[in-house]
Design a protein around this nucleic acid. Structure first.
Lengths: 244, 244
DNA sequence: AAGGTGAAGTGTCTTTGAGCCACTTTCTTA
DNA sequence: TAAGAAAGTGGCTCAAAGACACTTCACCTT
């Protein structure tokens, strides 16, 4: 016996089926005094109360039209930042990561520059805190499998540093080439040659001079901006780093 | 008033919350007579009955321990293939892609070589069929947003061709360098130089001679195999293609 | 049996973009 | 006004890509 599609839909009830928990977790990176930081919150509710976690929460079918909406909502609730670089890293689902049952989380990473952040502990009352990634050990064990999520996001970031211009989004709109190079050196954890680094970015035609200069106690440096905000350029060759 | 975590869990019931539908969809690629094919099924059930779709289905909390289990299960049900190259591409969720409600799907792509496939129309009675990429138009409109899922998967595949050895997994265990080059040319849709291509793969030390030869009506070609099955090598430089 | 055909496989030059490193420039501060 | 130090440049080497002609090898034709 065959029914029509509208008939079928009328009798469909999602609550008749066993279905996973769906959450979104955010790995929000920023650079603060020469090191890469990630935003963590201390959980104020069960489960895993008291442990540090990546900010995140349930996909909310009424609030969010799309999955990216969920991610942007979470990001905004925690940082007040409206439009950063946001990228989906992967989805992690199994029956053991959450004591409430079969659970699935979509991990995103965001890059924001520290200048436009206002950490809001207001919205959800959880305490948010920037943690330099080399101090992450002090915040373990983390809630759920959030250390794994973090690791995947951080690996993705480090990989992309090798062959894209992505980290530009971690700096403020105006930046010097030396600042950009320092950032890459922090992310790659290796020293880069100044000439090669400048050539790479200038030849790629993805940044332009703003006309302004950054003053300092030595020679002032030209300021640049990305030609396209939020864009990422794929270089044909990876950064290799020192040969010796 | 504070409760313990076990108290909290005892009273937790997922069916009290509004939650998305969770599915996994597979973009299964293979090479058949010199073109890239993707496996489609004709839907035999509501919704979208009669339309072509990527094989997939609900995440099944009882059957599957992990999300990857779901993907492998679906792949095996459709193709009988046990361990191919499998990669998660992305998760797509919104309130409009499925008429049953807020729905979320995790898209995977798989690369399998056509030799060890036995298309099973048995398990789930849907008809499965290989469709050459360039004929995909004839199978549109596809069910749900599956054309979008396909496009993302295919783009990912084409991108990876530029800087990884991934497509090796689309060929049979033994292959000639010319066959591999042909495959790359199909995927990139450009002509590649023979010498440069051979150098790239031989210098990378990721394939080895099997000792056998592929006979033909001209000079026989050496057969190679991947040193590590299912591995993908990241080259430092991308394939550029013709200069002129 | 001998020469033609055509894909497999090689030799070697050019080009591109990376690393290296010394040199020059331009500002502040002593 | 000289010293110091970071910004910025010139010009080399090196690795790996593209170009392209040349050689090799088996089959096929006559």
């Amino acid at each position: 016996m065959s029914t029509s599609e509208s008939d079928y839909l009328q009798h469909y009830n999602i609550h008749n089926y066993d279905t996973p928990l769906c959450t979104v977790d955010m790995c929000i990176f920023s650079v603060l005094n020469d090191s890469v930081n990630v935003l963590l919150v201390k959980r104020s509710e069960h489960p895993e109360r008291g442990k540090w976690a990546l900010p995140g929460g349930f996909v909310h079918p009424e609030k969010d039209q799309t999955l990216d909406d969920t991610a942007y909502r979470k990001l905004f609730e925690k940082t007040g930042v409206a439009s950063p670089y946001l990228e989906q890293v992967g989805t992690f689902g199994n029956n053991s990561r959450d004591p409430r049952g079969w659970s699935l989380t979509i991990a995103y990473f965001a890059l924001i520059n520290s200048s436009d952040i206002t950490l809001s502990a207001n919205e959800s009352s959880e305490r948010a805190q920037w943690v330099p990634i080399h101090e992450l050990n002090d915040y373990c064990p983390m809630a759920f499998d959030h250390l794994t999520l973090f690791t995947h996001c951080y690996e993705r970031l480090k990989n992309k540093v090798q062959y894209t211009s992505l980290p530009i989004n971690l700096l403020q709109e105006e930046f010097t080439l030396s600042e950009l190079q320092q950032l890459f050196e922090i992310l790659l954890n290796k020293h880069l040659d100044r000439k090669a680094f400048r050539r790479r970015f200038l030849d790629a035609d993805i940044i332009e001079e703003t006309g302004n200069m950054r003053a300092s106690h030595t020679r002032p440096a030209k300021l640049y901006r990305a030609k396209q905000l939020g864009a990422e350029h794929y270089f044909l060759r990876s950064i290799e780093g020192p040969r010796s």
